[in-house]
């Protein structure tokens, strides 16, 4: 018998590799009216402004209010547990992004899934250039069909007025993502 060829990934021979727990989305809100909104900025250029503009639109059009806004300590890594807890205790829905690079797109989706598991509906905003890597992370986290808001690449070169226009276009999609049951 020839020698077997070894698997270099470390995953083939693990006995029945544990599939990630299937994601059950957080319950969607009945409507946007009066919602407490959390904004999680991942530090990518224009992310803070885009999130703030969407927050203002929700405030103006739906009498929602932004109750917590934070910046991720490390855009490449998923948000730490204490951050997730703070948001879960202070807001009804979270808007986060912008997934606009190799690692931050993946980790923005990972954050969205963490919020969902913590019972908070999340709208993750990701550039359309990074949909593949965002989906790859969603799959790894047990949510291969996880829905997020996709926006045209690039976001970083937009000026302030263009960011405002982009926010106007995205706000309805953000609202529907956190208020309506989407098929998973």
């Amino acid at each position: 018998m020839p020698n077997a060829i070894l698997d270099p990934t470390g995953r083939a021979n693990v006995e029945a590799p544990k599939p990630p727990e299937e994601l059950v989305l957080a319950a969607r809100k009945a409507g946007a009216a009066g919602l407490r909104v959390g904004l999680l900025n991942n530090t990518k250029h224009n992310a803070a402004l885009l999130l703030a503009e969407i927050g203002e639109l929700l405030t103006g059009e739906h009498a929602a209010r932004v109750t917590i806004a934070e910046t991720k300590p490390n855009f490449a890594a998923p948000a730490p547990a204490d951050l997730i807890e703070r948001f879960a205790s202070q807001c009804d829905v979270v808007i986060t992004g912008v997934g606009d690079c190799g690692s931050c797109s993946a980790s923005a989706v990972a954050d969205g899934i963490l919020f969902e598991r913590a019972g908070v509906p999340a709208a993750v905003i990701c550039s359309d250039a990074f949909v593949v890597t965002a989906n790859a992370m969603a799959q790894m986290r047990g949510a291969p069909d996880y829905h997020f808001v996709v926006t045209e690449h690039p976001v970083a070169v937009l000026d302030a007025e263009q960011v405002r226009q982009r926010a106007k276009r995205l706000a309805p999609e953000v609202v529907s993502l956190v208020t309506e049951r989407v098929s998973q």
Partner: peptide
């Protein structure tokens, strides 16, 4: 490079976004 590809599972066009 092979450790990054195979053990970290970072493949081009997927989790690797060069």
């Amino acid at each position: 490079g092979l450790i990054v590809r195979n053990v970290f599972g970072i493949h081009p066009h997927e989790l690797e976004q060069a």
